[in-house]
Design a protein around this nucleic acid. Structure first.
Lengths: 228, 228
DNA sequence: TTGCTTACATACTAAATGGTATGTAACCTG
DNA sequence: CAGGTTACATACCATTTAGTATGTAAGCAA
């Protein structure tokens, strides 16, 4: 009866089955489970238990568990990289300062227990890249996307005079992504908050070493260059 | 008969059962398996298949699979850290240059397929730290060991005048260990050899930024400081 | 309304998993 | 050499695992 009521309003108003949503539900639940316990650490049953759906739905959308993993990289993690680390820099004049700031914002905004889970991309790289070619290829694409987009911003910063002319922006982009991975990885291993300060300070020092403007808006101690 | 022959030579010459060796065999095989496929990715059966022993031997020495994992951290990985990253610096005047050099030596000396396996410590941190407290504690101890010992060398370098006086050696030690983890992690994800050069170049730049001697024996391009 | 297709739910299976029970030969102590 | 203990090997078990077979209701085209 409720059904009829709704059904008469519009031609296609009530969808008891929401195609997009079901798939997305499974994908989102899978992301959280895999993020917290690793791909090999969660079972398909674990994942569906976290949704309102069942195994039938799972295997309707994903032929195998591996295919779900691949979808996780392509449809959840890649957009997340863009969303968290690339897009926020779009409107900034100096992306270099923006990257450091973004790290601080995301670290400060995250719950401590979330921080200990590390970086979703890095987790999957460490766990799955050596043992599955499908993961390996997709994770490499995701990493290169991050590096390429970071490089784009660095080139822009270089043109604008924020980065010294002798700096190879691509190498720096590699390093920045590497630092992210190492940073989150260390936070995961050392639950010491002092780790954050130490790492942040050293990252800042590196950024200053490639920066054309020796002092940032927030100088950490004195200027680090040319005062021996 | 061979047995008798040997047995007469010394009081306890022939050991059909070698207590230490059996345990070590299992530990070594487990290390390689876990290193390549992850702790959750290998089964106890997998491990014993790689040895000449059986499941009975395994559970004689290790009460559970988790206990084996803990032993891996304490008895294999921790000594490996000292062996690979700390001891080689003992005889060097300038540990800073030594660290960079050691990275190069170990990377060059490793087979490409071994490099793609990443760092044994980092692998376990990423996989197991969030899901098991026993691993978490031991891995943290291992990381802090690495950081503390690195710091010791940096303090020595600072006293000897190789590191600038304003540098916080402990922060730098954190950063160096972080860079190792990130470095190996990236090499694992990006199988591009150019990644190594890019990362190495940026690492070198960071080291120069904390170094008191602006130019190393192998200057990468011109001096990076004070020539704007 | 009819009838076909899609989107799931339920029940099941074969294999793998961590762990145990039990047997047995090696080793030590007396 | 007798008797007990240690160091394993073998066979087994309960549970979990990815994946499948089958049932069924929703949605749609005619």
């Amino acid at each position: 009866m409720v059904k009829n009521l709704k059904a008469r309003k519009k031609p296609k108003p009530t969808r008891i089955r929401d195609l997009e949503k079901t798939r997305r539900d499974i994908l989102d639940a899978a992301f959280m489970e895999v993020f917290t316990r690793g791909f090999q650490g969660v079972s398909v049953d674990d994942i569906v238990k976290k949704t309102t759906h069942t195994k039938g739905a799972f295997y309707h959308y994903f032929p195998t568990k591996l295919d779900l993993g691949y979808a996780l990289v392509d449809e959840v993690i890649k957009p997340m990289i863009i969303d968290r680390w690339i897009s926020p820099l779009d409107t900034l004049q100096d992306p270099l300062a923006g990257i450091l700031n973004q790290i601080k914002v995301l670290i400060d905004g995250a719950a401590p227990e979330e921080l200990q889970l590390g970086c979703p991309l890095n987790n999957l790289v460490q766990e799955m890249a050596p043992i599955d070619a499908g993961f390996r290829d997709r994770l490499q694409v995701a990493l290169l996307l991050w590096i390429d987009e970071t490089n784009r911003h660095l080139q822009r910063a270089k043109k604008a005079g924020f980065i010294r002319a002798d700096v190879d922006t691509r190498s720096a982009a590699y390093f920045i992504v590497m630092a992210h991975e190492g940073f989150y990885g260390m936070l995961k291993g050392l639950r010491d908050p002092r780790a954050f300060e130490a790492l942040y300070e050293s990252l800042d020092r590196f950024f200053q070493s490639i920066s054309a403007t020796p002092v940032h808006e927030e100088p950490l101690g004195a200027s680090h260059c040319c005062h021996s």
